[in-house]
Write a protein that binds this DNA or RNA. Structure first.
Lengths: 138, 138
DNA sequence: GGAGATAGTTGTAGTGCTATAACTGTTATA
DNA sequence: TATAACAGTTATAGCACTACAACTATCTCC
């Protein structure tokens, strides 16, 4: 029984558990009534206010499209743009209370562990937690 | 230390390991020189020949778009359409040897466990294999 | 001070995919 | 037999997002 085989099986289970998350994406889209990248923008901004260029980087998209996304979120009252006092070229995008609420909803949907995982016995969960906790953070 | 917390942490690690798979999608797209759904179609057909309608169902897309995808794959010599002998309305789509090769490439890319997982000690891998093997297949 | 780089906006074009309609040929069922 | 349903194709429109160009205002650095 090779470790490569075991790792392959382990990874297959993980992929199943997470990729059923595809309908979590759709769930987020439905719950928030916006495209998924907009929810990702909200979640990024819920962490801290950032510049437009930094937001584009975090969303792995380009500046013009980021402008479009933020325009829409601002129109929905979920974010505000403010002038950066340190550099007059720059805008800081901040999340509003309503935006934070939406971001929290999205986060809850995305991060909820599958019921079959939660249903594992405590000693199994403890072992998984311990082992997976060893993995490197890249 | 609640089980819900442990499950949340466990799931977060899984999500990280799998969602870095987003660049696996891109890797597949680059390696095969086609859109991702085309690679998914090839992988479905590599299992067994199926009807167009069944293929659309498996791809979770609609019949007109499935026609477009299969048209392209057929033009590339990766699949062939044949008349279903049991029902003259139906076509069976079969993969060609070249298509099978492309599907195998995609599968290899997608299913390869992350190196940090493979690098875990054997007893940890065995434990993960055993525990995750208990999860229900939905 | 001036040249070059950067921030964010405005604009255009294209791709992948969803959604829908309509059609011809075929099958199933009342 | 007639009607309804189904298979697959052709066609159209729209959305989300990528990619790129160009612009004005501002900043950095030689």
């Amino acid at each position: 029984m090779s470790e490569q085989d075991a790792a392959g099986r382990i990874y297959a289970v993980m992929r199943r558990l997470v990729l059923e998350a595809d309908d979590r994406k759709q769930h987020v889209v439905d719950a928030l009534g916006m495209s998924y990248i907009r929810s990702r923008a909200l979640r990024a901004l819920a962490v801290e206010p950032i510049r437009m260029t930094e937001l584009a980087t975090r969303l792995v998209t380009d500046k013009p499209y980021t402008t479009l996304v933020v325009d829409d979120l601002e129109a929905r009252g979920l974010v505000v743009r403010e002038q950066d006092p340190d550099d007059r070229r720059c805008k800081i995008v901040k999340i509003t209370p309503a935006g934070r609420e939406a971001a929290d909803t999205a986060t809850r949907i995305i991060t909820a562990p599958p019921t079959e995982l939660v249903a594992l016995p405590p000693e199994d969960l403890e072992a998984l937690d311990r082992i997976l906790g060893k993995l490197q953070h890249p």
